[in-house]
Structure formats: C-alpha cells, structure tokens
Simulated scan of single mutants.
Amino acid sequence: MTRTPPDLGLGSNAQRQELAAATEGCPVLDFPGTSTPYIDYQSIDVLLSLQHPRSGHPSELTFYVLGQVKELLFKLVYEELVRVRALLDGDDVPGSVWALRRTRRVVELLVSSWDVLGTLAPTEFNAFRDHLGRASGFQSYTYRMVEYVLGNKVEALARPHRNVPHVHEQVQRALREPSVYDAAVALLARRGARVPRDVLDRDFAQQAQPHPDVERAWADVYRDGGPADEVFLLAEALMDVAEAVCRWRSVHLLVVERVIGTKPGTGGTTGVSWLRRITEHRFFPELWTARGLL
C-alpha cells in the first residue's frame, strides 16, 4: 500500500537549519501518522517483508538476503550502464567516465558479496539446498540484462524468461539494443578511427565478433593519448568495469567450489566445470587484445 509521506515542510537548507535549531541538534523522534519518513521513502517495511526462507535452517537467511541484495545491485549496474551508453551516444565522454567509475564500485560491492556467501560451510548449505529445487542464479533476468548491455549477446540465454511476459519484454529489449561497448566503438568512429561499416551497422541482438580494425583503433588511443586525453580515460574506465566483472565471475567460481565442490548445479549445469569455462570470457575483447599491439 502506498502511503502519503507526511509534509514536514523541509524542502530547503534553511528549513532544515531551522529544524536543527529547534531540536538543539538532536534527531526528531515524533512523527504524525502511522509511519516514519524513512520507512516511507525507502519502503522499508515492504523490503523487509520479502524474505521467505523455506527450510527453517538459520544459514538459509544469509543465502536468501544476499541473493536479493545482488539482484538490487544488478539493477543498479544495468541502469548505470544504460546511462553510460546514452552519454556516449551524446559524445559526453567525461560524463560517461564518471558514471563508469561508480559502476565499477558497484560491481566491486557485488564481488564482496561472495565473501559473505563463502562463509557458508558445505553442511550449512546442504541443510537447505534441496529447497531451491531447480532455482538457480543463472535464471536471474537482471544479471542477464547486465550481460547484454555489456555486450555478451547470447540469445538462447533469454529463453528461461519467455513465459513471464513483463520480464521477457525487458530482457528482449536489452538483447536488441546496442551494448555500452557498441556505443564506445561508435564514438571511436566519430572521432576518426577507421571502424568498418559492418561493425557499426549490424544486428545488435547478435554476438559481436572481434575485429582487427577495432583492436588497432584502441591501440592507437593508447599510443596517441594519455591521462589528459578523454578517450584514453574512457578506455581505462571500460577496462575497470570489464575487469571487475571478471573478478565477479572468478570469485563466484571459487565460492561455489568451496561450498559444493564438484556437484552439479541446481539449474542443470555441471557446476564448477561450467563456471570455469565462463570465467574465460572477456567483455570488450579488443580492449584486452589491443595491449598485445603496444
């Protein structure tokens, strides 16, 4: 149920200063109505009502809450990268670099979530694992959208969501739209790099194939630029995000291996061996391989 936030008349610094003077710098403790401004602003009561572990085992709450935290962070990463793409389309390189800086920090927070999950002993995880049934993080549509906006366009991986109309629509849109890397390569072309037309005008729902001309274009950015050059800074900011996502995958692999060993995953994969293959993938491939030309 949506509540109407109480009108405390605190829309300016002057009003907030007046309130602080009235309370002698102490927090306000009394509010009208049946809620508080913080509960209403953050929907805290709704948020904290969404945890429904199934086993009754105390360790399941850790797994459950961290899963929901990751979903919120995936949403944030996706929205930030969509904004980066728009900034690049508008030739706002400094703005995109600034947003990529924050995106990297959010991904680092995602990586650290595995540190908490890694505290689950195998016996603790086994105590509730059967209650997952066929549920698997692989089915996360927010993570799939993150992969798509980063450029890993594997169309088949959208299939789990085809029977959930509102989710399917979001995932398909993320699949069909250009990735943030497509936007960066298009910017290189506008800045004079020799990028083939078939790289720029392609079906964005398909996986892009690495191209030697794009690799050379990024190598030129490094040769000709430096910390004072905005496209050089863009290249490094993109690499920061790509590396952070690689770390996410690598730590995921380690934690799964630590907790379940070589047992198969709940979603039908072989588990660790399947995750190990995934860790070899690189987002923004020509940015990685261009280093070999320098």
Rank of each mutant, 00 (worst) to 15 (best):
T4C: 08
G9L: 01
A14T: 08
Q17N: 11
L19S: 10
A20R: 13
T23S: 07
G25C: 04
C26F: 14
C26D: 15
P32V: 12
T34A: 12
Y38E: 11
D40Y: 05
S43I: 10
I44Q: 12
L50H: 09
Q51A: 02
Q51Y: 01
Q51M: 02
E60T: 01
K70V: 08
L72K: 10
L76A: 15
V77K: 06
L81C: 09
R83A: 15
R83D: 14
V84K: 06
L87P: 02
L87E: 14
G90V: 07
D92M: 05
P94E: 11
V97I: 09
T103A: 12
S112Q: 15
W114I: 04
D115R: 11
D115G: 03
T119V: 01
T123G: 10
E124T: 02
R129C: 00
R129Q: 03
H131K: 14
A135G: 13
Q139E: 11
V146C: 04
Y148F: 15
E155S: 09
H161V: 11
H166N: 13
Q170N: 06
R173H: 05
A183E: 07
A186T: 08
R197T: 15
L200V: 11
E215V: 03
R216Q: 12
W218D: 04
W218V: 06
A219Q: 03
R223S: 05
M239R: 13
V241S: 08
V245A: 10
S250N: 14
L254V: 05
V259Q: 00
K263I: 00
G267T: 09
G268R: 12
S273A: 15
E280S: 10
H281I: 12
P285S: 05
